[in-house]
Design a protein around this nucleic acid. Structure first.
Lengths: 251, 251
DNA sequence: GGACTTCGTGCCATAATATGAAACATTGCA
DNA sequence: TGCAATGTTTCATATTATGGCACGAAGTCC
């Protein structure tokens, strides 16, 4: 939906944002040199941008090591963003119902860059893989929600990186394979992954649409592959589509 | 702790960040003209920055109205920031214990700009005012945690805005009043507010220190003023100080 | 139904702004 | 003690961001 055309005349702002995005769970703290090298920016430039971000509390420093890390201001902005989106609030009760009725874990996800971000999650009855995964991001091509986006959101294919790295042996890595699946997904109304994101994990997903028919997010139900045979996937997929339809303000 | 010296040579980045901060709960969506006026930036400049932010998914647009709002990328960054700070993880069990033992609500807060941000919260036994306040921000001068910061974090006084607007009739609004309190707070080891943030609400708070003695955050216990007479406040304050000490890695 | 306002967007000359090489100050390591 | 790596500051340069202006579209008021 929201394509990202290459802007111009805001290089510094872009660079600053990209610096922030360099941080990850694996690397929550980075030195100036690391950041500079990783982002390809001059050391001085990096330093100046970081200083600016720090003055706005988006960047903090470990007082012991002097390393840079994400700051409290970002937490505030993130929470603000979460609170602002009424999507989460609207979908919350639906997630509960889905989790209750299916016994599996239900999630609400949106695309960010080339991955799917878990916005909200309600664990199912079965206590298997369910954990606080809110905020986790998975490759778009290895998730059921990602596939749903690819099938139903025009222009989402551009989000797919050129190189599709496999997460499990079953992960789809050829762009052509998607073309075939997309037809099925559109006809069926929902997407699925089986052992493609994690071995032993399967999920079904579909998209939520807004008043103008634009895609606002994706719902999924997922659980152990054993419990998710073809018949059950079809059943859950149908439940999912029904829920998504009721979330559409046009109905 | 982290003072914000005026940076230079990163104007564009700063302006972009400040645009993001213009959004609030009351105004989750704004038009270009509004943002431009509110931030004092030229319309063209505002537009260019917003475009850049949008391309990075920090800004999104309401497809129906075309209004700007905070984007999913910010949620991702915010969650990332929350996950990165091990502060929350470390303090979580302590909050639980505090809430359990006292029956009141315990929070973990950090300063952002001129307010205190609730990073985490565990509701007490009594179901009174406890709600999902994580992400809420309160004026630094009207909160117990804010006072604790003012007393124990050098240079935090600079965070105090010149004009201290009263939140309730009891809110302290004179800078001089703080000077007197700060001495008491330092000797006592914890700060308190009674009916200053909300009528009928009282709380005690103290700070958590890191390995170098630097202030990392603030803990609070709060509840209805009726239950929080002077004796109980002293008792809870003592409990709080004990908990804060145990959180210090030097012990 | 036409004149007017307000909105987002594109263009472009200007100079203010951000840039990066180099040098400096500190700290940790050999 | 010397070496290497770090974060930090300075400064001349031109790249980059700026904002005035103009355009098309959508909405509003007579």
């Amino acid at each position: 939906m929201n394509d990202a055309r290459p802007p111009q005349g805001a290089q510094a702002a872009l660079r600053a944002v990209r610096l922030l995005k360099r941080f990850s769970i694996e690397r929550p703290e980075m030195s100036l040199a690391e950041l500079s090298k990783a982002s390809g920016l001059n050391k001085t430039t990096t330093h100046r941008l970081l200083r600016a971000l720090q003055s706005e509390a988006l960047i903090d420093r470990n007082p012991a090591t002097g390393a840079y890390c994400l700051g409290a201001g970002l937490m505030a902005l993130g929470v603000q963003a979460l609170a602002s989106s009424d999507l989460r609030r609207r979908v919350r009760p639906v997630l509960r119902a889905l989790a209750r009725d299916s016994g599996e874990t239900a999630t609400l996800e949106v695309p960010v860059e080339d991955s799917m971000l878990i916005l909200d999650e309600v664990a199912g009855r079965h206590v298997v893989g369910a954990a606080g995964n809110i905020g986790t991001r998975w490759p778009i091509h290895a998730t059921s929600t990602g596939k749903a986006y690819l099938a139903f959101d025009d222009g989402c294919l551009e989000r797919l990186p050129d190189k599709l790295s496999p997460v499990t042996p079953k992960t789809m890595t050829q762009r052509e394979d998607f073309q075939a699946q997309i037809v099925d997904i559109r006809r069926r109304g929902f997407a699925m992954t089986v052992d493609e994101l994690e071995d032993g994990f399967a999920a079904v997903a579909t998209v939520i649409r807004g008043p103008l028919g634009e895609v606002q997010g994706a719902l999924s139900i997922g659980g152990p592959t054993q419990r998710m045979d073809a018949a059950r996937r079809a059943e859950l997929g149908s439940v999912l589509c029904h829920a998504a339809t009721r979330l559409n303000p046009r109905f």
